[in-house]
């Protein structure tokens, strides 16, 4: 916020912080990335039957610059990974990411050369949603988890640093998958 630099951790700043977090969590603007079948369930999640408007996240933005919640809903291929990352990079901070579905979280049933085995290989993920596809209420649950996270004051506004060990780990991971 910047205010805490001037005033320190006083009752005033912490109260403002929690008020702002409360506002943030109840007005998440999702950037829908329905890149395959999970996208259909994500649409249902926005429709009246499940009605994400109850949680204040009904304003789907098709421009990453106006969104603060990225919902990656679908099989992410290596070719698409660059695009997903570019969209994520264009979103203003603070931002959160939901990996929706088995494909996005782990490659799912596509254990093959063209599909990234989990988007966490190139993107920080806050909540993973299980299922193929997950039901819309499952995605709502993920949204509520994000809201709890925001209320606790956790955000990924600082990008994760790449370390040499991390890269080596990733490489081992990929090779491990190959040997199986």
């Amino acid at each position: 916020m910047g205010l805490e630099h001037a005033l320190g951790d006083t009752a005033l700043t912490t109260t403002i912080d929690s008020a702002i977090n409360w506002c943030r969590k109840n007005s998440l603007w999702p950037m829908p990335l329905g890149i395959s079948c999970c996208g259909i369930e994500m649409m249902a999640f926005a429709m009246p039957r499940f009605d994400v408007a109850r949680f204040g996240a009904e304003v789907f933005r098709f421009s990453p610059r106006q969104a603060d919640l990225l919902i990656v809903a679908g099989t992410t291929t290596y070719k698409m990974a660059t695009v997903v990352r570019k969209i994520y990079d264009q979103m203003p901070d603070p931002k959160w990411v939901i990996a929706m579905g088995a494909c996005t979280s782990s490659g799912g049933m596509y254990r093959t050369y063209s599909v990234v085995q989990g988007i966490d290989q190139f993107l920080p993920v806050d909540v993973y949603v299980a299922g193929c596809p997950p039901r819309p209420d499952n995605l709502l649950h993920a949204l509520i988890m994000i809201q709890e996270k925001i209320q606790r004051g956790e955000s990924r506004s600082t990008p994760m640093t790449v370390t040499a060990e991390r890269q080596e780990q990733q490489l081992l991971q990929i090779q491990g998958i190959n040997n199986n």
Binding site: T82, R111, Q175, N178
Partner: peptide
């Protein structure tokens, strides 16, 4: 599972 690192990830 493809050739490791043949398609670079971001």
């Amino acid at each position: 599972m493809g050739v490791p690192d043949s398609i670079p990830l971001p």
